[in-house]
Amino acid sequence: MSASMSLSSRLTTTVAKELVVAVSGLALTGFVCMHLAGNLLILIGPEAFNAYAEKMQEFGPLLWVARAGLLAVFLAHVGTAISLARANRAARKSRYDQHNYVGRRSPATRLMLLTGLMVLMFAIFHVLDFSVFGHREGPRSIVEGMNGGASLGLWGVVYSSFGNPLRALFYIAAVSCVGLHLSHALSSVLVTLGVLFDKGTDRAELIAKAIGAAVALGFASLPAYVLVRTYLIGVAG
């Protein structure tokens, strides 16, 4: 046997790399769900959401530890997935003249790399937009005709941002990518982790699609809420 059984060689095969993508992906899914739960407070009102945002700040240095951890998981997920995708591309150098897919792979499966890259670019923009340049007492926190022109904190920043239909649509497109990505990932991950066998596949795929749709709709409800309130009901509402 020419194989090397050292731990380092065991941890660098494609199967091991898939495990890295799967486990980091699950952790990121956990983050996305918590992020969604927090964001839904926007629907309740400025007090609830701003109180939640302030509470997060109270963690102080721990918040930076959590951020660093999240970044590390994110980089591991993206880096490993890209390394696998490159190897997969290299595995077929000459292309078929015709290649018809006859299995049951969904568009979400086909678009994994694309939706993943879209989410990556969106995540960078999003952090810059709402954390770095979205100062919670700055001019963006003031919503015209609301609160007598006084700052509405982070809630105001979000509200005034989504008042711009282009921004709102961009955000909806981005969270749709997140949902589409999850709708494949959450059943695929069960195969990688060695738990999903033939019998449960249909149900797992259905649940994955449901979660993907729920996450996308949950996030999309925020810009939708602002747009409806701004253009249909009127600001004062």
Binding site: A3, T14, V15, L84, N88, A91, Y101, T109, R110, T192
Partner: peptide, 18 residues
């Protein structure tokens, strides 16, 4: 699995075309 990688095959992205 190591030999499979060494031969230059890709990895499984769960397309189920196989």
């Amino acid at each position: 699995v190591q030999q499979m990688d060494k031969e230059g095959f890709g990895s499984c992205s769960k397309h189920y075309e196989c």
